[in-house]
Design a protein around this nucleic acid. Structure first.
Lengths: 199, 199
DNA sequence: GTTTTTATTGAACACATTGTCTGTTATTGA
DNA sequence: TCAATAACAGACAATGTGTTCAATAAAAAC
């Protein structure tokens, strides 16, 4: 899956310059406010060069999102797999901490909406699969809503944790996340089961 | 607080045309993709007229957000006040249903980020105040994270409920929301109290 | 080390969008 | 009816986007 040929040094250099500049600028001004012109000025790279590598800013930011999917789906066959609703919270928060600046630029308050939606989608899918597979009642649409809500909570927690510059250790943060996710599910059977709640 | 003078009919007409056009366009193409030109074309209104009323699209969309703040903060002194973490969930979901199209344009998947952030901020503030005031431990930064997470969950639930075109009745949706919010808090003391968890 | 390949450059280009400003016209409220 | 004012069309500068091209520089291949 990894690239067969080692890339031309110039390519590596240019792409790194561009991504680093984008991250800096996003953290300074917010993703929306960053113009391609700003990026290439800071990176000291020609305009045509930028477009030789990326179609637009979005693609540039996306080019650095490997750690994200790896966090969620990497090492799925490990024995130590400690999954909560199909997600390895420990690894997710650990990787986010390892890539703090990049992660904050992608997911922080000033981050790009598209990557946040992307993460939300991945998380939602995982949670929903787990939830729908679960026994009990069959109200799939309600379960979808619940999955959306819980996915929002997890992404929201991750984002504000990054935005606040990691006030908790990755370990504590993931423990907190686990408690929130599982707790929110605890009272659901009472509500979702139609016959038992005659309101 | 309401306007003292009745507005010129032309003003009312123009503003309504513009807002209705914006809502339609947002539901069709998504907020980002809508240009001022699109709005005034559909509303059949002159360009200069648009800017006589609003500074930009954002302000136009914001001009219709009265129901939102009213949902959260209206009738605070009612005896029937049934608050969950400082929020009247019943009224919130009911008002959102009453203003379905507008609410979906504002908060749906294609909605404008700014209003979503605005709602999140209001919800977060309310939850955080309630949570910080609560006894037990004093880890304010952890509580802030929890408030952010729970606010994200509530906003996320509301958004996906709107996006899915109200698969549950407002009553059922608010009941579900209450269960999710309170449930997520249930297990927290175990995690947040430092001495009892020697990990 | 020379040659070949390829990335980078800068400048110009068409295009879209924004927000402002003008004098003129049409509608409104009194 | 008439004075006030909202709406109008259209042009405008400013900004940003994405493309193209020949010339240059740097890397890779030999």
């Amino acid at each position: 899956m990894t690239s067969s040929k080692p890339l031309d040094r110039r390519i590596q250099r240019t792409r790194k310059l561009l991504l680093d500049s984008l991250i800096e600028l996003v953290l300074e001004k917010g993703y929306e406010a960053v113009a391609v012109q700003d990026i290439i000025d800071r990176a000291n790279v020609g305009r045509s060069t930028f477009y030789a590598h990326f179609e637009n800013k979005e693609q540039l930011l996306f080019s650095g999102h490997g750690w994200l999917t790896e966090s969620l789906f990497g090492n799925r066959n490990e024995p130590s797999a400690d999954l909560t609703l199909g997600i390895n919270l420990g690894i997710l928060f650990q990787h986010a901490a390892d890539n703090h600046r990049l992660a904050k630029a992608m997911l922080g308050k000033k981050g790009g909406e598209l990557i946040i939606n992307h993460l939300h989608e991945l998380v939602y899918t995982s949670i929903n699969q787990t939830l729908q597979a679960n026994q009990s009642n069959q109200d799939t649409s309600a379960k979808r809503l619940v999955s959306q809500a819980i996915a929002s909570m997890l992404v929201g927690l991750l984002r504000s944790w990054l935005e606040a510059d990691l006030p908790l250790s990755p370990g504590k943060a993931s423990t907190l996340a686990r408690a929130l996710l599982l707790g929110s599910l605890a009272e659901l059977p009472t509500v979702l089961a139609p016959p038992s709640v005659p309101y």
